[in-house]
Lab assay of single mutants.
Amino acid sequence: MAAGGDHGSPDSYRSPLASRYASPEMCFVFSDRYKFRTWRQLWLWLAEAEQTLGLPITDEQIQEMKSNLENIDFKMAAEEEKRLRHDVMAHVHTFGHCCPKAAGIIHLGATSCYVGDNTDLIILRNALDLLLPKLARVISRLADFAKERASLPTLGFTHFQPAQLTTVGKRCCLWIQDLCMDLQNLKRVRDDLRFRGVKGTTGTQASFLQLFEGDDHKVEQLDKMVTEKAGFKRAFIITGQTYTRKVDIEVLSVLASLGASVHKICTDIRLLANLKEMEEPFEKQQIGSSAMPYKRNPMRSERCCSLARHLMTLVMDPLQTASVQWFERTLDDSANRRICLAEAFLTADTILNTLQNISEGLVVYPKVIERRIRQELPFMATENIIMAMVKAGGSRQDCHEKIRVLSQQAASVVKQEGGDNDLIERIQVDAYFSPIHSQLDHLLDPSSFTGRASQQVQRFLEEEVYPLLKPYESVMKVKAELCL
């Protein structure tokens, strides 16, 4: 049975990233139509530049190519590739079939990587351009969430054990800070992308030097003109047959890092959902379990974690691919890159769409948070109580021993009897502590235990987050809708 299948058929496997999760716009960027249309555009740009620099290419040939950029006979191309065992030459023939007058000058002087690699770089750039505003929107939604809850005390956790208090907004800023680093890295790697350009079979530009009869300047002009037509500021000066596969490492490393950030955020949300302090959106008709109707599973956060793990592992592909590119190139890269580049971007696209949807509907339960604080705060307040007693004339050592005994009794009630923490009640009825009984409410005010959390939130948002989001103001209103 021949390899390949009808990918629109229910009898043929289709990647869930495309069929179930990723956005239509990201799927289109990695589609065959987008790819092969870009090949034709690159052939047109090459012909236009070659004509401008004096090669015998007519206006009629150029116009014929322009008129057929979208006229792609995919069936013919597939048949040609089956016959020739070469995808680029299959599309040269297919393009030439609908451009008979231009057929002889299509791909003039070029090698397969002229269309293959340059198209990949265009796709990487455009895919990054799709991700950047999506990530900015996630940051914006979380920034709104953090600002609104900047002063809401909550129990902090280290080692997932109760620690000092923080605020809900401050905790959210930990998430935002990681995503801001990801946004900066995505922008950097996007701006650092260079075009492969017009380089020939081993990167020496020998074929173009021959076409222009040894004119170095025209060869350099050709490279520059096509690079500018493709919208790049610069091209690699040095290439082998391909652009260095280190570029793929750079791009997928940034995406993998984004995956790590999203995994951490969504894990926190899942843990908070278990504590009943916070939940992701839950639709009115949504079913959490087929057997347990009360369940409210954090399905979206779980999906993000599941896909983020996949995204983090994909960076190993370009690392290994770059390491086995012998001399000017081997074909070890080809099949692998067809999979890992598309999957990385479709996965990143999915987790950003999902995280935006989550961040637009996060639900906080202040009463649950308050109750958990009441359970733990008495123990945390013991040092403040000791200091207040010393100020009232008591002995630190005597007070410490009193607190120690009462704390152990209260802990026994919590752990052995399943009761509430009654340390404060014990202190309130103990005559030894009568000098500070009137101060206990103040000493137990949760806001006095959150330090500068709310001020940190305000400063972080104003100095770091809002300036970073400013270039994306025009796209901030787009909502994230999930079908599944």
Rank of each mutant, 00 (worst) to 15 (best):
A2D: 02
A2R: 14
D6R: 10
H7W: 09
S15E: 07
P16C: 00
P16G: 15
Y21T: 13
A22E: 10
P24Y: 12
E25M: 09
F28Y: 06
F28R: 05
D32G: 08
Y34I: 01
K35T: 14
K35S: 08
R37G: 12
R37E: 07
T38F: 15
T38G: 14
W39M: 15
R40P: 13
Q41S: 12
L42Y: 08
L44I: 10
W45M: 11
L46G: 12
E48T: 12
A49N: 11
E50V: 02
Q51F: 07
L53C: 05
L53K: 08
G54C: 12
P56N: 01
I57G: 02
T58A: 03
D59H: 05
E60N: 07
Q61G: 14
Q61I: 00
Q61P: 14
S67M: 14
S67H: 02
E70F: 13
N71P: 11
I72Y: 06
D73F: 14
F74G: 06
K75D: 03
E79Y: 10
E79A: 09
E81N: 08
K82M: 10
K82L: 08
R83G: 06
H86A: 03
H86D: 03
M89I: 02
A90C: 11
H91I: 08
V92A: 06
V92L: 08
V92P: 04
H93N: 10
H93A: 08
T94F: 05
G96A: 04
G96N: 15
C98T: 06
C99M: 00
P100Y: 14
A102R: 06
A103D: 02
G104V: 06
H107M: 03
G109Y: 05
T111V: 03
S112G: 11
C113H: 01
V115Q: 09
V115M: 01
G116T: 10
T119W: 01
D120Q: 00
L121Y: 10
I122S: 07
I123R: 10
L124F: 15
N126R: 01
A127E: 15
L131Q: 05
R137W: 06
R137Y: 01
R137T: 12
I139V: 03
R141T: 13
L142D: 15
F145C: 02
K147L: 04
E148C: 06
A150W: 01
S151V: 02
L155W: 01
T158F: 05
F160A: 03
P162N: 04
A163P: 00
T166W: 03
G169V: 02
K170T: 07
K170V: 05
K170N: 12
C172Y: 12
L174T: 02
W175I: 00
I176G: 04
Q177V: 06
D178H: 06
D178A: 12
D178G: 02
L179S: 02
C180P: 05
C180H: 00
K187A: 12
R188Y: 00
D191R: 08
D191Y: 10
L193M: 08
R194M: 05
R194V: 08
F195M: 10
R196C: 11
R196A: 05
G200I: 00
T201W: 04
T202V: 04
T204E: 01
T204W: 12
Q205K: 02
Q210N: 02
L211D: 03
E213C: 08
D215T: 15
H217T: 11
H217P: 12
H217D: 04
K218G: 03
L222T: 02
V226H: 15
V226S: 08
T227P: 12
E228V: 11
K229C: 04
A230N: 13
G231P: 04
F232A: 01
R234W: 00
I237R: 10
I237G: 10
G240L: 13
R245H: 00
R245C: 04
R245P: 06
R245W: 06
K246G: 09
V247K: 11
I249R: 01
E250A: 10
A256V: 14
S257Q: 09
L258M: 11
A260P: 08
S261W: 01
I265C: 05
D268W: 01
A273G: 09
N274C: 10
E277F: 00
M278G: 04
E280H: 08
I287Q: 02
G288V: 09
M292W: 06
Y294K: 05
Y294Q: 08
Y294D: 08
K295S: 13
N297W: 07
P298G: 06
P298H: 09
R300M: 00
S301P: 04
E302F: 08
E302M: 15
L307M: 03
R309N: 14
R309D: 11
R309T: 10
M312F: 00
M312S: 06
M312I: 13
T313W: 07
M316N: 02
D317S: 08
L319T: 00
T321E: 06
V324E: 06
V324Y: 06
Q325E: 04
W326N: 09
F327N: 12
F327I: 02
E328Q: 00
E328G: 07
E328K: 02
T330I: 12
N336C: 01
I339Q: 15
L341M: 01
E343F: 01
F345H: 01
F345E: 02
L346E: 13
I351G: 05
L352Q: 09
N353K: 11
T354I: 00
N357C: 06
I358Y: 15
E360P: 07
Y365N: 15
P366Y: 11
P366L: 13
K367A: 13
V368G: 12
V368I: 15
I369D: 12
R371F: 13
R372H: 06
I373S: 06
L377R: 07
L377P: 02
P378F: 09
P378R: 10
F379V: 10
A381E: 11
T382I: 06
E383L: 07
N384L: 13
N384M: 07
M389N: 00
V390L: 06
R396P: 07
C399I: 09
C399D: 03
E401K: 13
I403P: 04
I403M: 11
R404T: 07
A411I: 15
S412W: 00
S412V: 14
V413G: 15
V414Q: 00
K415P: 07
Q416I: 15
E417A: 08
G419L: 06
G419I: 15
L423W: 11
F433L: 10
F433M: 09
S434C: 08
I436S: 09
H437W: 03
S438Y: 00
D445A: 14
G451H: 03
R452E: 12
Q455I: 00
Q456W: 05
Q458M: 08
R459D: 08
R459C: 12
F460G: 12
L461T: 05
E462F: 12
L469P: 10
L469A: 12
S474V: 13
V475N: 14
V475E: 04
V475L: 14
V475S: 01
M476L: 01
M476P: 14
M476Y: 14
K477F: 01
K479A: 14
L482K: 13
L484Y: 08
